[in-house]
């Protein structure tokens, strides 16, 4: 009872904040009426901003109308510079999943190795410590130069930025598996492969998935910037293209869409985290 009433109250407050913000936004950008007398022909040339005191910033209703138009036709394709927001999103999500998947293929086995071998942990530590703080976009020129393909380069950038959290968390999770569980496996003469899959992996899974959740968040942050740089397709390119088109409504729309997709990706991994967690 208390639980639902708290949720309800929070919902009401959220909605109120949204309405107040929307209203303030609406008032803030609406015109203050005719500012000066001028020739109608001249006024047409000057535009609403100069004549009506209206802000160049679109209002919430404009943005809603834009979102509606995108929702009606998300996947249209009218040439390289005019694709539906759904197509652009699909490009970005595809790149993120590809780069992220490749990072998983590398980070999980390598993390296992580092976690199980104190020697490898020490030997690889300096490389990881130096590479980890590098902004993934700093890799872009090197990627473009070696790969010579902008789309694959952005996948590489996603790969490199997803790698570190997964690698570090996997190594940490594997190395901190409780000794007593390993001893159980040892007294039962469980072989190394079976031990890895039946004891170490389930024991380290919550830590590993936490790393994966951090990675997907970073990957989604980075893809927008990477696509702004390399251009062509993707939601990042879309934002930059609409900025060049001076379509602020589209820029705001994409911000909302980027946030929404990021939230969905995060929630998906939160679900995985719940599935692999175990109470002690």
């Amino acid at each position: 009872m208390r639980q639902t009433s708290l949720r309800l109250r929070a919902g009401i407050v959220s909605l109120t904040i949204l309405l107040v913000f929307g209203l303030a936004w609406h008032i803030g950008v609406s015109g203050s009426g005719p500012t000066q007398q001028m020739d109608p022909e001249y006024a047409k040339l000057m535009g609403q901003t100069a004549v009506q005191g209206k802000s160049a910033m679109p209002g919430p209703l404009d943005v809603l109308a834009k979102i509606w138009s995108h929702l009606k036709e998300p996947f249209y394709d009218r040439g390289p510079n005019d694709k539906g927001i759904g197509i652009q999103l699909a490009y970005s999500i595809g790149r993120v999943l590809l780069g992220y998947g490749l990072a998983m293929l590398v980070a999980l086995p390598l993390g296992f190795l580092i976690g199980m071998s104190p020697l490898m942990a020490r030997a690889l530590d300096p490389f990881i410590q130096i590479m980890k703080p590098v902004s993934p976009l700093a890799w872009m020129p090197l990627a473009l130069y070696t790969i010579k393909d902008s789309s694959i380069s952005s996948i590489f950038v996603i790969f490199i930025c997803s790698l570190w959290p997964m690698l570090i968390n996997t190594a940490f999770g594997v190395s901190s598996v409780r000794k007593e569980w390993l001893n159980v496996a040892r007294t039962l003469e469980v072989g190394p492969i079976r031990r890895a899959f039946t004891v170490i992996l389930p024991a380290a899974a919550p830590t590993i998935v936490t790393g994966m959740r951090i990675s997907i968040g970073i990957a989604w942050l980075v893809i927008v910037a990477a696509e702004m740089l390399v251009g062509g397709t993707g939601i990042g390119y879309f934002v930059w293209n609409e900025w060049n088109n001076l379509s602020i409504t589209n820029v705001i729309t994409s911000i909302l869409v980027i946030g929404l997709v990021g939230m969905i990706l995060d929630q998906a991994l939160a679900r995985v985290a719940r599935a692999v967690s175990f109470p002690e």
């Binding site: 001893n183 159980v184 040892r186 007294t187 039962l188 003469e189 039946t198 389930p202 024991a203």
Partner: peptide, 30 residues
């Protein structure tokens, strides 16, 4: 270590992600 010598640990050392049946079955299938 050998399966001929079973250990009962002070801290019970059960695998928390397995059920009761799963914990016992793990030993048996080993």
């Amino acid at each position: 270590p050998s399966l001929d010598r079973a250990v009962i640990f002070q801290s019970h050392a059960l695998l928390p992600w397995r059920t009761v049946l799963g914990n016992v079955a793990y030993a048996i299938s080993s």
